[in-house]
Design a binder for these strands. Sequence first.
DNA 1: GTCTATAAAGCGATAGAC
DNA 2: GTCTATCGCTTTATAGAC
Lengths: 186, 186
Amino acid sequence: MARVIAEREDVIPLLGEIFRTYGFEGASLARITEGTKLGKGSIYHFFPGGKEEMAEAVLTHVDDWFKHHVFEPLIARADAVAGIQAMFDDVGRYFLSGRRVCLIGVFALGSERDRFADRVRGYFAAWIDALAAALVRTGREPQQAAALATEVVGGIQGALVLARALDQTEVFTAILRGLRDRLLVA
Amino acid sequence: MARVIAEREDVIPLLGEIFRTYGFEGASLARITEGTKLGKGSIYHFFPGGKEEMAEAVLTHVDDWFKHHVFEPLIARADAVAGIQAMFDDVGRYFLSGRRVCLIGVFALGSERDRFADRVRGYFAAWIDALAAALVRTGREPQQAAALATEVVGGIQGALVLARALDQTEVFTAILRGLRDRLLVA
DNA sequence: GTCTATAAAGCGATAGAC
DNA sequence: GTCTATCGCTTTATAGAC
């Protein structure tokens, strides 16, 4: 059996799933070594700062993904409606239609929020701002656009909570559809 | 200084705030003794089953509160519109206008969900059912009422996530107002 | 009902061999 | 880059005195 040499890059998504599942405090090193199939030695070789550095790396990874796939298209795409449409598609895929939970949402609700307050706030603020900007370009008043964007980003988070609580992914996809229609069917 | 003899009943709300703040895994016995001002001996005298029994007691307490203050009025009040109106008022107060987070929501997102899956599912299902029943009595089709109720209960959870993430209680109250108006201004 | 002492296990993190 | 052994601390839970 070939020995697999891991790279830091490859470990980050695995860590993401672990933090998503157990939260920061619940993500024990035992669970981390199990989930990554790496020994403590390797983990600390990649992340000398320990769990804190692991979580930072995961948060940066998530931030970058959303910036590239969601926020920037919302702001820069010539066709604002298409950008909003794409947001719902990408978000639906990212959260695996409700089977996967939002790491930043988990951190926001838990006591992790204090530790990563800036990252948590920055993520949601950037999302709301980007969506509001797109809504303005579809012809809405800035104030109404901001309120609507807040409602929708919150609605997505709530849909993730409900889908997981009820163990029904359809709840997530149905709410997502409803939110999208409210934005695009004017 | 007078010695205060505690009763189990008095401890449960304190435990609720601790679980709300730290989650199940994060609520260490050190934090619990600090938050309740009780020694381990007293805690285990009231809850021989340990943390699991404490969490069960808190969940039952929350369940009962919502059943009495929210679910039953939604179902039984003669004036359905007044019942829905009261739900938003009570919920706004209960969550301290967004400063307090939903324990069941915290448990739903974290790994606590597996442990308390039935309680978590039951809480949200009861809420959605009660709200849907009230909406039917305002003249909506059952199917549309169920969809709308799901959207609103999810929206409230999302509003709590956002308010905490952005550290802005106005986000919670604004979203709550928007949801209420969508239900009542037909 | 409350307290302190204590046990046994798990925790994050480090050291050093390979 | 990976591993094992180990440190020191915290964890949940129990026992027994008061």
